[in-house]
Amino acid sequence: MNNTAPAKALILAGYGLNCEEETLHAFEHVGLQGEIRHLNDLIENPKELQDAQVLAIPGGFSYGDDTGSGNAFAQKMKLALWDHLQKFVARDTLTIGICNGCQILSNLGLVPGFEGKYGVRSIAVTHNLSARYQCRWIDLKVQAPSPWLNGIDRMHIPVAHGEGRFMMDEETLEKLQNNRQIAATYIAPDGTAADGEFPYNPNGAYGDIAGITDDTGRVLAIMPHPERGMFTWQRDDYMELKDKAQREGQTLEEDSDGMAIFSNAAKYFK
């Protein structure tokens, strides 16, 4: 990598994606150069992917989740950008899909991409077992080696989705486990496995899975939102933390758990 210019992150937007601004802020905060790109502009000029090191598909509600969350957006990407996407992930780049982005990556088959074979849909991210949107803070245990997750053990960040339930057949689940492609799982606050129990596992995902990677670890599809838990003031327990810090004469860290994911991207290209 060129050491002088910061790596460039493209953050997709359009058709109901809605977390592009805060995701951009996360990348800029850790020193990457970031740009929001409408899907149609990228389709118009797909060569832009050649100059980017990071592709982020942020959260949102593309096409209103109609015909299945992330499905229609993925269909459009596949039709118009597939070759470019394959070339992009084949290079030494990083790709992240958060929430709706995670659903899109799964529908595109950029995860799990067993044996480097992209394009196969073998994971469904579908309706929560509660059949209801869930916006709540959860705890995660990192399970897989991935440039995105280096040095992270646990994370306290929120989920916000109606369709976040990872499902797959047994064979696929076994492969994910054996290949260490399960990025993170939901846990109870005491650190034990959520074991499907609501609300620790907020959607009934098989194996408590909150995110998966491709087999290189460079493509991460994750349902929880690191960018909504990147600063301490965003946390659900911020009021308690700041009160405690004040009583003890301490200063709170500005960054919180979610920022580590973005910092890892910056470190990867240093």
Binding site: C19, E22, C135, R136, R228, Q234, E240
Partner: peptide
């Protein structure tokens, strides 16, 4: 109601609808 309303999109929520 609060848990089915996305109350932290845009990453700006500081003091939310459910406290403590």
């Amino acid at each position: 109601i609060s848990t089915q309303y996305d109350h932290n999109v845009q990453g700006t929520a500081c003091l939310g609808p459910l406290q403590g």
